[in-house]
Nucleic acid binder design. Structure first.
Lengths: 222, 222, 222, 222
DNA sequence: AATGAATGAGCTTTCATTCAT
DNA sequence: AATGAATGAAAGCTCATTCAT
């Protein structure tokens, strides 16, 4: 049976296993990610695994929750640095792409979650959507969101756009070194998405949401 | 070794296996969809499977290609019935949701493909995107697509919106019998998506793409 | 059930299967030599196989008997061309090596027979031994075999020497093109064994058997 | 993955599996010696097998190497107890037959190795041959080997004689209880081969090798 | 005479999990 | 807290053989 670690040393062991599990799940898929492999990579015995996690399924769910927390924190951090509502949204979007670029595990693990742990996947999407909805409601209050737009529907649309663009231009391009081409150096500046794609995407998003649609936004790069 | 069936009887057997495999993969996931289960459901011997497919992986890829073909055909059929360009796009979108509602297998199988057969998944998305791009280019020619919108980016955004909305409002709602609640009777009228959601989504899409953005479209139901 | 072929065409089919089976058994071993592979190589349907052989085991035994017949014929033909008794023996030996060089299948198939069809293997060795025994008895009558030598024991010793030398210097050397190095052109002259090894072997054999032992034989090359 | 046992308990388990595998391979042949059968006979779970051996092929090779080591040790032990060179050779020969009589597995497994693990089989023969060559070279130095005899060729001839005689008079006779008939009691005295056959064989060998050939040796029994 | 579709037992191998130490 | 030996069910896949055509 699993339990919370009682000592600091135990805490470190548990964290190491969780970390390694994330990588292994992402690289090999849930089913090929055997406990043997995970424990070997974490340099612990197989039995040790079961001190901290009740089952393979359980680590997987933990991994999903962990990733969800991390990506949401990155998005919140980025958007709360902005003052304008849509500017905040744009910043959050960019943060999402950056996270994806830095943690391709996110995608691959979420894909698996559809089968392995559907309820946790649902939570993942719902929590991100909630963040978008909150942001859009705030924008609405400030008159920055077109009246005819439903924040709920818009939130899921934004997520879909982000996920698909992330897959297409971040993940698939990654081996080609797209990020490097951007010439950006600090993580804050690295957009994840190629800048022209990011701009085109934001233009589309802003046309959809902004009350003053049709007015092209300035071509800022995220 | 697998081979193409040489007799009509063989052709029927192969088709039955492919069909059953689609269901089983969708219901249980690639890993739990054992050959034993597939062949039992298809009511053939296990060896028979290997007359027509070289491996489990191979049927899976075949299933993905088959679904891709079917969904694209449904979309093309629906949109080519319309005359206006964006009307065609709207019709294709609706067809996608209907297909999703009728074949929830599509989603679940594509999610798995990310891990099981990434190159085939890529083909799947690229082929659908190509369809959108072609439609949007045609719309551009007729002045129905805003100048500042990149058809490529828009295509992937549309796919993302469709996929996310389909997951959220078609798949997740399905056990609740949402489709039934709609009161629609013929498959043509069944929108897949609840009509108010479909409308809200189309409003957002049309704001994003149409040159006359900001002008709310009338609330047609797909 | 299998039956003897009734037509000439059937005879050809059966012969083709037997021939192909010999090759496939030699190349892949009894167990990896599947009926599918054999029939495919023979370009007949799987069912056709069972028109001529009752089972896989049966073809194998037939193959063993066939090879035994062929190697004995080669040996008899070679030795009956000689007049001296030990000269005949030497010629038979050489024929054995030549056959081995030309049909490496012989070895590989006999090795398998130990497990797959032990009684047929026994027959194989006993028949060859019988040939040697007959030759040695004739030599004894002509005073060409030392009194203290038991023909039965000598026969099996000769077979052992031939088999081991064939394995060591014919089979194992074969990829190195040892036969080619000999510069011999007609099959009759090709010794199978490198000539210096063949001579050394014959010297040893003749010392063992000849009544005038210790008298080195002239270094003829087979 | 297989690994060396890390505890004493593991060492015992591995040894038991290796031992049982030798018997099962000899009795049923490589192919019919299923892992299920081996592990059942060793009274361990199937998975346990794979803790110590990577595959069926791997145990088989290990078994071959193990047998090779044991038979060579038996031969060396027997021949190093003798002082005369050819006496040593004779003692080694006898040891070989005794080993064969006590471990019929040797033959049956080596036959299989031709197909299953040819390179290991080759090592097996080469190592034994090396032993003979060393012995014969030493005999040559002491003037106990005829000048015209090539030690290399003689070594392989001796192996061939030993193998064939062992097959014919040890293995094939065994079910008839030949060894028992010999009336020998201690393993040292049990010749493996019926004494008259052993003597006849040694006579032949000594004629072939000894510089004073033609001089019948006294009919000592091994 | 010839075929190829169909079968299911049986193979090797993997893996999450338990437990004694 | 940590380990690694042990397990056995279950997986994917092959194959000799049968049989309807």
């Amino acid at each position: 049976m699993s339990a919370l670690p009682r000592t600091e040393r135990g805490g470190r062991t548990r964290a190491r296993i969780l970390d390694v599990a994330t990588q292994v799940f992402a690289e090999r898929g849930y089913h090929d990610a055997s406990i043997v492999r995970i424990t070997a990579a974490a340099e612990v015995g197989q039995g040790t695994f079961y001190l901290y996690f009740a089952s393979k399924q359980e680590v997987f769910e933990e991994v999903v929750r962990d990733l969800n927390q991390r990506v949401r924190r990155a998005m919140v951090a980025a958007s709360s640095a902005e003052t304008g509502r849509l500017a905040a949204e744009r910043a959050g979007f960019a943060a999402y792409f950056r996270f994806t670029a830095a943690n391709p595990a996110l995608y691959r693990i979420m894909r698996q979650a559809e089968i392995v742990a559907p309820h946790v996947l649902r939570e993942h999407y719902e929590r991100i959507a909630d963040g978008y909805v909150a942001g859009l409601r705030a924008a609405r209050v400030h008159g920055e969101l077109a009246e005819e737009i439903d924040p709920e529907v818009a939130a899921w649309a934004l997520m879909g756009i982000g996920e698909m663009a992330g897959m297409r231009w971040v993940l698939w391009e990654q081996p080609d070194g797209a990020a490097a081409r951007n010439g950006a150096t600090t993580p804050e500046e690295r957009p994840g998405l190629p800048p022209e794609i990011f701009d085109a995407t934001m233009r589309l998003v802003e046309r959809a949401l902004s009350p003053t649609a049709g007015t092209p936004t300035e071509g800022r790069t995220a």
